[in-house]
Nucleic acid binder design. Structure first.
Lengths: 364, 364
DNA sequence: CTTTAGCACTCAGAACCTTCGAGTGCTAAA
DNA sequence: TTTAGCACTCGAAGGTTCTGAGTGCTAAAG
């Protein structure tokens, strides 16, 4: 316990790696004998036993009960992930699937992200999730209001990163379509380039004040415009494949499965949690990995997250990643996430600011 | 077995009802003694036993094993649902919740439906689902194309029922915003009022042909317009609360739970299944109830659906309903669904064609 | 000092048995 | 036709035993 921070010598590392690899594979506590035979280690099982006892004392391993093999602790996984595992390049097969699937769905950023998330879940067979793009430094770029029929209008808000959100609103029946356009234009004039966080109802009102309408009507329209602008920046979550988790033996116990799925169903909580970390660990690495207890969400103690960020333009816009059991195939997931991330960023780039890729295979 | 279609006398009906009620409540096979004591039946357990044996022979009950109580068969549930159960009005408390929750979210039809579905799941504690509005007799009412930035446009399609869908598309960089508006206008002129199913790429091209643009550019825009129109009619599914099913003892066995959730996760399948029945049973009743084997989707054998339709204008537009274990609290669910349906229809009506409800509590 | 063979010990899980009791069907009396 | 009574059934719960993969420790070998 008190030796926790001791360095691991090479052999201990090797053994720890073998244990984690094995456990990830089999989901069964691994014992000294099986370990030796399965990994052709150049020492006897007795030696392994001694080393295992050391590793346990140092906090890297745990024993479900006295006469069972060892399983990795959070610290064990952490060490494995930080310095032991071997991340290989994604097999061509899978790379191709991802690339083609992401190319198909080209029209819109959120659709792309949703698709990427689904892909991730299918490729890894864990649950996946993604946060909708939200750059806190988003500026308002355009706002249009389109009359659909008397009394209803569509408000289209375009943000600096090229994100487009829209929303149906009710407006007074008396407002006609050119008035509506004028109001939208006035707001756009007044607020263009303003950071979303700074936009208040007062600001919107001020910008739209001079439109040729009685105040009572005008105010309703302005209010709806304001709400639409604010909602354009809402955080959304896309989750996929959480049912896949039921396939893993760690969730064979229904009540455990249930608590996990129940937490995941509260998308807001997960979103909030992931969103907190969005600024963190900039240089370290592209991934954020949270293992077991490291996840500060009660109910996910025996899960792990691996997430990464995607970019729109040159700012981090959101997160996308995978949730699985603690005993996750970390290396495999990372190579998947990595590849998806790259492709996603490429696609977003070519979508948002891009003038490439207009080849004519859209013939019908 | 061969007496299946025999009539049930009053007493048998009473007993069957008691059994189903009890089983819905307790999830345990019900025996003659418990039944008598719990429901104060005016006969002895021996009589009940005889009747139960009859009911079993007639196919209304099943026996998990010889020395256990009886549970309802699909036919038993069916009879219960068709003529035995007592549907009570929704408790005020719940009615109020539903009413207020549905009022909150007023801006848009699909949002409303999604909300209604979530509500249904929360109120009943089963899974819920809804199909997006899709009237096969939808006509095209408007199409607008809004330039977002060079090379990107938002296509807004308005259908006859007041449904609005939009989609980001890529367009050639050279097209400018007034050209775009002209094209949209031309398409709208040409296709206004045309049933969606009849709209082909050729028709769109013909309508937009005379816009002042080189053909190669024009064709791309027209193609995107066409796709947008077609996608406006896509069937979508909103599902909520499927994790709630894990709470019921019928899903205590993980592998059963998994197959069920896996089927539900394939939203397309469920959607397709529900969509088939959308024209059926018009006069019978407002609900469609499918029990166990009646559901022609393998994997949902021990589930039941209860769905109803909602309307936009005066045509049936989609379905909304609940999925739970076969042993579902049918009466309770029905009163919930019924109430949600009414409120949903009201809200939709006031949203789509309405000029009411513009009270000023949007002050802030 | 490190490694390893050997050995006694541990303990969860499977397999088997017993008990218990809620349930049945049948028979005979009311 | 109903009901009391009774013998019978059989799953679930609880207890026992057995098994074997796993351990830690000791002492010999390198």
């Amino acid at each position: 316990m008190n030796h926790v921070n001791q360095q691991l010598d090479e052999r201990k590392k090797m053994i720890l790696k073998a244990i984690v690899d094995d456990y990830i594979d089999t989901a069964e506590p691994v014992g000294s004998k099986t370990l030796v035979s399965r990994h052709q280690l150049p020492v006897s099982s007795a030696t392994i036993r001694n080393e295992m006892a050391d590793l346990e004392e140092m906090g890297y391993l745990e024993q479900p009960h006295t006469s069972a093999g060892r399983i990795p602790s959070d610290l064990g996984y952490r060490t494995y992930v930080d310095s032991l595992m071997e991340v290989e390049a994604l097999p061509d097969e899978e790379a191709r699937t991802i690339r083609t699937m992401l190319k198909e769905n080209m029209s819109e950023v959120t659709g792309l992200i949703r698709k990427a998330s689904q892909l991730l879940s299918e490729q890894t067979q864990y649950a996946s999730l993604a946060l909708s793009p939200k750059c806190c430094k988003n500026h308002l770029q355009q706002i249009k209001m389109l009359m659909i029929e008397p009394g209803r209008a569509l408000v289209v808000v375009v943000l600096s990163a090229g994100l487009v959100k829209d929303r149906m609103v009710r407006i007074p029946d008396l407002v006609d379509s050119s008035q509506l356009a004028q109001i939208a234009h006035a707001i756009e004039e007044g607020l263009h380039g303003m950071p979303l966080d700074d936009i208040t109802l007062v600001a919107v009102s001020a910008a739209g004040k001079h439109a040729p309408l009685p105040d009572s009507l005008l105010n309703q329209v302005l209010y709806e415009a304001y709400v639409s602008i604010k909602q354009a920046d809402n955080l959304e979550v896309y989750m996929a494949g959480s049912n896949k988790l039921l396939a893993y033996p760690e969730f064979a116990d229904i009540s455990r499965a249930r608590t996990t799925l129940d937490v995941l169903a509260k998308e807001g909580m997960v979103a909030g949690y992931l969103n907190e970390g969005i600024g963190e660990e900039p240089a370290n690495s592209t991934y954020m990995i949270r293992i077991g207890q490291e996840i500060a969400l009660s109910g996910l103690e025996n899960c792990s997250f691996i997430t990464t960020t995607y970019r729109i333009g040159d700012t981090v816009a959101g997160r996308i990643g995978v949730i699985g059991p603690r005993r996750m195939a970390y290396a495999k997931v990372i190579s998947n996430i990595n590849f998806v991330r790259m492709n996603l960023n490429d696609q977003i780039r070519s979508l948002v600011s891009g003038n490439d890729q207009m080849e004519g295979d859209r013939t019908l």
